[in-house]
Structure formats: structure tokens, C-alpha cells
Design a protein around this nucleic acid. Structure first.
Lengths: 347, 347
DNA sequence: TCCACGTTCGCAAACGTTTACATCAGTGGT
DNA sequence: ACCACTGATGTAAACGTTTGCGAACGTGGA
């Protein structure tokens, strides 16, 4: 492996000049720069990133920790992150926490050793941990916000309220009056947001809480059973994974979708349109979110001198979402029955 | 940030002792080791990975490059890799090549700077590039083998031949006599393997080449059209992505599956069982493959002194696959028509 | 002729570890 | 009483790079 010394010797200059020439510094003569670049290329020189990182302090890789790589939504986020990161000449180290808080904490510990810039998707650890992390590590949150505004921790989130509103309006227009919300994990910030959003449902539309479920096949069966028991005409799921599980259970119990019950998801993962029936769902631009997170991470936190210092430091960006109407929603079968009672759901 | 010097001073020893104590070296007194460990923990000391890597030469992260993170099969591979890597106290840097050879080459260049251990899933670059890479970087291939056996490049692959054989036998037992193979990209090593495998189909079963397609929705329509045109009673797809595309096109053209045409996939991605009809497919243990690749990467290449040196250096491991019979395959509608002619497929 | 100054470059000090080698104190054998 | 040896620790070099500082060398103005 050729080092900077080899290049320096071959080009007849000092290592300092090689370093500067390769970095494109202005303080080196054009002729010298070109000669050095040629020599470096000829020798197949590639800078040792460890050495560079040691002296500069700034690493060339950013960390991405997400709850589940096999969830297509996060896969898309990862893809977006990866593309942007590579375009910037950096690399991305990824960690999967298996939706588990303890694993997440362990991963965070491990990563914070060598990584100084982090993207956290749907982090489950408490706010305090995040703030502690933010002290030494520049951090961008996806699907979560912090109460206190630290300028080192920014976030990018989908328009949860808007998405729920669109879905609810769609169901209302179809004629639904009694809708269930099948929630996600209690520790999920996104779920809390979406839960809050349906409180402001259009007048005349009652939304009941169906409970909290783990997204996926297993959570889907309990959620579907609850929906049937409650007699709702439509169910709005926390995300597509859960909606898919619900669809599966409904099919197994021979409950016609959308004739007897309409189902709406959230995320619009690629398979949503392939299901039978194709899933009506709120599309959130996962890849874009990932890309945007990287942008935020690279933007210098305080370039105060430029323009006025407090010009919205973009501490939080909200991405637009859009309902995709497909085959899993339709008018309710009969006139929607009067909601039995204003029974508020458990948990 | 506390350095090793801070710990040394606080514990009243030299940095060398701290380094040894924390590494668990036997050459340090138990009492000293414990005192150092306590001090280090109290100071919140975490070793600087860049400095460590600089001196040891060995990095603490392994690279994983794969063609498409949004393909659930590779997402599963990535998950398996990630788990194993983390268990070993390392980190994984991931790169997505978008199924593009040039991108792959660029990624390989970029990664080989700071990474000395690599896992390549379905690499598209020519053998020569891989051999060059293997010189300085310990490499494990997934879904590909090299002709020449370099001891620094090993590989883990699914039992392609076995999988195809199982699928073909299943179709034959069902009564099919005229089956189409919808192939993947021409540059894919896996596709070549699977193509070769169907040459040795059971007697009486004719398999025709339907051509080469990009896996996914778009490739699926052309492949389905070709299958219909050829009049096959069943189609065996290169992978699930392609099979899903075919299913979609068949549904759009109102060709009943499995009544008119049976469809078999390869991979068994999680959504396969959720489709309508649920996809019969060859299950390959993606997560296990990822984990196994990491194991191979960590195993020291030559521990010659131990036992006899040429005891199968495990230069290649083949993973068992198993056909999952679901709803997309059935007996052909009528008695399978005599194959019109022995027309061999294009491409 | 001399001085001030800008451009281009080299010197050498850091960055935080690991590790080969030296040092030192015991300990048991002769 | 001495020697050889083992076990525990310290010393210092090395890893490959970036970068502040100063040296050398023109160049133009006074």
C-alpha cells in the first residue's frame, strides 16, 4: 500500500505538499498540483482514512440506526440515506435494533465510539439519552422530535397529522361514521402523533382506539379481531405492516374487504399495491426522508456570519404525505350503524 | 473526551498497562486490571477507533455491498450480516449499488480505502476485478463463485441446482410437461446457475427459456406475455421479485393462476405468502447466508499448524434450500398439450 | 539598493493507540 | 550468596495523515 510518503518521494516534494495538492488547497502551484495528482494516481495511492480521521477528528462515515431492515419502509429510508451519503464521498454504517430498546442503547454505545454523525430512525430510547448523545454527536432524528430544541439535534418527520386527516376525510366521504384506529407500539413517537391527530376528526366521524399492537402478521390478527368485535366499518392502521396483518386475518375469518370492512394503511410500502385487495394507504416519501436527513446532517450548524443568524435554522423539516386510494376502501355495506356507545378503548 | 492517557494518570499506571488491562491481556496483575477497568469506566473512557485502527492496521468495520436494499431478499441478508457483525463487536458499512455495474465499481473503490474485509452480494463486476480486490481485502462472495480458488476469496451460495430440481419435480408431479423459465439479468451468476440446472430436468419435462428480464414489476409483464405466447402451463421465475411481476401481469390479463398457469418463485421473500394467490417458491435462508458470510470473514484464513493444513478450508459453503408449496401451483387445466415443437428460446 | 510583501513550499508537531523491548523486583535452585 | 528466570510494568517507537509556522524566493515600489 502506497503511503503519502511514497507519493512525496516520487513527486519530489514533501508530504505536506502532497496532502495540500490532493486536498485541492489554493496554496499550491498549479503545476505542482498536477504533477502530484499524476504521481498519486500512478502509484495507486489512496489516503488512509484512519490516519486522516485521527488527526482531523472528523470521521468519514455517518451512522444510521433503524428498528428493522426488513420493514420495507426503513429499507427505503436506508436506500435514500445511502445514496446521498455516497454522493458526498462518505460511507454509511448501518445498525438494526430489532425494534428493541436495549439493543438500541447498545448499538448507540457501540457506534458513538467511532462515529460523530448519526441518523436515528424511530428511536425508542428516552429523550434524556438522546440529549446526552447529542452533546458529542451531531444527530438527525427521523420519525421523532425532541421537546427541547438542541441545535445539534434536528429532525425530519412526515406530516402525520395531515396523513391521518386525509385518510379520515376519505373514509368520511365514503360514508363511514365509525372507524377504528389500530395503534403501533406504545413507545413509538409516530404512533402518539397519529393518535393525537384523529382526535380532531371531522364532525360526525367517531374514531375509537383499537389498542396498541406490534406491527406485522401477529399484531394484525389481534387488531383485526378487535375491529370485528367493535363493529367498526373501517380500520385505520398505524402502518402498512400492521394493515397487511389485518388484511390477512380478515381474509382468514372470511370478512370481505372492503365490502364489510375498509382498511387503510400508512407508509405506502411497495407491496401495498400488490396485495389483494390493493391497500389504500398514506404514502410517505421514505427515500426522500433519508436523503433529507443526510442533508441536514451535513449542513453546518452555525454559519452565523453569513446572513442573519436566526434565519430558521431548519431544525425540523416536515415531509408532505399523500393518500393513495386503492381497492381496500369502499362505501360501508349498509347505512353505518349508530355507534353502540361512546365506549372509549382500553390502554 | 477522555483518552488513554487520562485513564493512565488517574489509575497511576502507564498507557501501556491501561491498553493491556482493557484488552484483557494475561500479562497484567488482576488487581491492576480491575483498578484500571474501574477508572476507565468512571471516566467514561471509550477507545478511539481511528487511533487503534491506525496502529493495528485491522479495521473494526466490515463492508457489505448489495445490489438493492429494497429487495427483501437482500434486506434479509443485510439483517443477518448486521446481527452477526454486531455480536462480534464490529460495525457494518453498507452500500447499495442499484443493480448497476459502474456504481458497484465506484462503491468498491470508495470502500476499499478504509475497509479491509468485505462481503459482496451478487457482485456484477468481472472476475478480474474481484481477484484484484482480493489481494488487499479479505472478501466473501454471496451468490457467486470464482473459477480460480483464491484463499482470500471464499463464497456462500444457495443450492441453486437443488432448488430448481425441487421446483421442477414438484411441477412434474403435478402433471406439468411444458414449463417456461423466466430468467434474470444476463450478468447474474445466480441466473446462469439456475439456467444450467434446468437442463437436467426430469425426463418428459420440457423446459423452455423465456428470456432474460430485470426482476420486478416491469420485467414481469414482458415475461408473463412471453409465457402466454409460448403456451407453457407453468413458469419458473428467476426470483420472487420477477414472479410477483408475472403474477401481476397475469392477473391484469385475466389469466387464472394457478388454473391456467402455475407460477413458482425463488427466494421466499416475506411477502410471498401474502400474495393472492400465495406464491409457491424456493425458500433460501437469506439471513443465515448473511450470518454465515460474516463467520467466514472472521475465520482466520490459514491456521496451518493446528491440524492437517488442507482440511477443507471451507472455501465455499452451500446453503440448503426448500421448496414452499403454496397456492400459485396446481395441476394443469387440461392434459398438457404436446409441446408444439422443440423450439429453443431466444437470447 | 533596500524593504515589504505575496506565493509556494518544507519542517515538525500533533492525533490516540498498540506493542516490541527494556527494566525491575521477586523467587527458587544451586 | 549468586544466578537464572518469571511476572509485572514502564519507555518509546511507530502507524499515516493534517496543519501551524517559518523559510525561501521572487517581485514591485520607494
Amino acid at each position: 500500500m502506497a503511503t503519502i510518503h511514497d507519493v512525496a518521494r516520487a513527486a519530489g516534494v514533501s508530504t505536506a505538499t502532497v496532502s495540500r495538492a490532493l486536498a485541492g488547497s489554493a496554496a499550491v502551484a498549479t503545476s505542482t498540483r498536477e504533477r502530484v495528482q499524476r504521481t498519486a494516481h500512478a502509484l495507486g495511492y489512496v489516503p488512509n482514512s484512519a490516519a486522516r480521521q485521527l488527526v482531523t477528528g472528523r470521521g468519514q462515515s455517518i451512522g444510521l440506526v433503524l428498528p428493522d431492515l426488513e420493514n420495507p419502509f426503513y429499507a427505503a429510508v436506508a436506500k435514500g440515506v445511502q445514496q446521498r451519503v455516497r454522493a458526498a464521498g462518505l460511507t454509511a454504517v448501518m445498525a438494526d435494533t430489532d425494534e428493541d430498546v436495549e439493543t438500541e442503547r447498545a448499538v448507540l454505545d457501540q457506534l458513538s465510539a467511532g462515529i460523530d454523525r448519526l441518523i436515528l430512525a424511530s428511536p425508542r430510547v428516552p429523550d434524556a439519552d438522546l440529549e446526552a448523545l447529542g452533546v458529542k454527536t451531531r444527530t438527525v432524528l427521523i420519525n421523532r422530535q425532541l421537546q427541547v430544541a438542541t441545535d445539534r439535534i434536528v429532525s425530519v418527520v412526515p406530516d402525520n397529522a395531515g396523513g391521518i386527516a386525509q385518510a379520515l376525510r376519505h373514509l368520511y366521504n365514503l360514508g363511514h361514521r365509525y372507524v377504528g384506529y389500530a395503534g403501533g407500539p406504545a413507545t413509538s413517537w409516530s404512533d402518539a402523533q397519529r393518535r393525537r391527530a384523529y382526535q380532531t376528526a371531522p364532525g360526525g366521524l367517531e374514531v375509537v382506539d383499537l389498542g396498541a399492537y406490534r406491527p406485522g402478521q401477529v399484531g394484525g390478527v389481534a387488531a383485526a379481531d378487535e375491529a370485528i368485535a367493535r363493529g367498526v366499518t373501517a380500520v385505520l392502521a398505524f402502518n402498512d405492516q400492521l394493515a397487511i396483518g389485518i388484511l390477512g386475518r380478515l381474509a382468514a375469518r372470511r370478512v370481505a374487504v372492503p365490502e364489510r370492512i375498509s382498511v387503510v394503511g400508512f407508509d405506502d410500502v411497495p407491496v401495498a399495491r400488490l396485495l389483494a385487495p390493493a391497500l389504500t394507504t398514506v404514502a410517505v416519501p421514505a427515500q426522500l426522508i433519508g436523503a433529507r436527513a443526510v442533508d441536514l446532517l451535513m449542513a453546518e450548524p452555525e454559519t452565523g456570519s453569513g446572513s442573519d443568524p436566526d434565519a430558521a435554522p431548519a431544525e425540523q423539516v416536515v415531509m408532505d404525505v399523500e393518500l393513495q386510494v386503492r381497492a381496500s376502501t369502499a362505501e360501508p355495506a349498509a347505512a353505518s350503524p349508530e355507534p353502540a356507545a361512546s365506549s372509549n378503548g382500553g390502554q
